[in-house]
């Protein structure tokens, strides 16, 4: 599956790490790094608006993550609020 291929190819501080994957007849299982801390959506729900310093920190993370994906030939295509942290 594409997701598995990408995650195993990508090695970045800012992308969730894929630890291993396996499958049975019906499902593919992806074992990933556990990233506590919730997602951006709940952060925005809690805070409403972020300060510019705060926001630029997250932007920097996301830009690094996205450019890593681009460098191995994938497009993220459209973001989700649920990107980590």
């Amino acid at each position: 599956m594409t997701e598995r291929d990408i995650l195993s190819a990508a090695d970045s501080e800012w992308l969730v790490k894929l630890l291993y994957s396996f499958q049975d007849n019906d499902y593919l299982y992806l074992a990933m790094e556990y990233v506590p801390g919730g997602d951006l959506r709940s952060l925005l729900t809690d805070f409403g608006v972020l300060s510019e310093d705060h926001a630029s920190f997250y932007m920097a993370e996301m830009i690094v993550a996205v450019s890593t994906l681009h460098s191995i030939g994938y497009y993220h295509r459209y973001g989700r609020r649920s990107t980590i942290q």
């Binding site: 608006v49 510019e52 932007m59 996301m62 497009y75 459209y78 973001g79 609020r81």
Partner: peptide, 20 residues
């Protein structure tokens, strides 16, 4: 389209972080 769609999305996210 090309990779720029991802930066469009990041721009939207930045907007949302700042504007709510």
């Amino acid at each position: 389209y090309n990779q720029m769609v991802d930066y469009w999305a990041l721009g939207c996210i930045l907007y949302e972080m700042l504007a709510g």
